[in-house]
């Protein structure tokens, strides 16, 4: 069951790499948040109540509900629906994503010879998700897509931290939660600001400052 959820998590990334509709990206972020929430319920049921509550807040509250809702609000209020002209055709995007998966699982498999390695499925998928998030940031033009790429990288690191299963003190977790929330919030505000100043949300517009 656990593994099925993680594999589904990986599949959402593959889906994202093959599409250019921003609504789909947001739906995938929602699905990722829900999958992480289910994973928490499956694996962390013996954790302390405050820790569990915090993790539920982070996955269900932040990753599944708040961030997708906020991103959808920004997309609607700024009338952006498509990731126009991806710099990479979808076919190559899917091929690259697949290659990232192969590489990640190779790394995960190779590292099993080391002590204390996390389980291969966890480790492989989380490396792949982080790398794919970076790939999305590198290959897409719209700055709103960069925010989504950032969230995907965050989801990947969250999965990795679940695999390690070492608990941070509550105060640290709380701080991390707050930081991510404020980061996404600020990035969202800036998307709107940039839209009203530049009348365009393309990363190529942000090239005035250079040497």
């Amino acid at each position: 069951m656990e593994y099925a959820l993680i594999v589904l998590f990986g599949l959402t990334i593959l889906y994202i790499s093959a599409t250019s509709r921003l609504e789909v990206y947001i739906n995938c972020l929602f699905i990722q948040g829900m999958l992480l929430f289910l994973l928490i319920l499956l694996t962390m049921h013996d954790a302390d109540i405050p820790v569990l509550l915090l993790l539920i807040l982070e996955t269900l509250g932040l990753k599944a509900i708040l961030v997708p809702w906020f991103l959808r609000y920004i997309i609607r209020s700024n009338h952006i629906y498509r990731e126009a002209e991806a710099s990479l055709p979808h076919f190559y995007s899917v091929v690259l994503t697949t290659m990232i998966f192969i590489f990640s699982f190779f790394v995960a498999w190779w590292s099993t010879r080391l002590p204390d390695t996390p389980e291969t499925v966890y480790f492989g998928v989380s490396i792949a998700v982080v790398l794919n998030g970076l790939l999305i940031i590198l290959t897409r033009h719209k700055i709103i897509t960069h925010v989504m790429g950032f969230m995907i990288v965050e989801n990947g690191t969250f999965l990795l931290s679940l695999a390690v299963a070492r608990e941070m003190p509550l105060i640290v977790n709380l701080g991390i939660l707050l930081d991510i929330f404020v980061a996404v919030f600020l990035l969202g505000i800036m998307v709107t600001r940039i839209r009203s100043t530049f009348e365009e949300l393309d990363i190529d517009m942000l090239t005035t400052l250079k040497d």
Partner: peptide
Amino acid sequence: KKRTSLEAAWKYIFICSLGITFAFIGII
């Protein structure tokens, strides 16, 4: 709220937050 300040702020928060995420992977 000038073009240049928006651009600088965007690069600042985005690159630093992404970098900091790498630091988090390091902590893990």
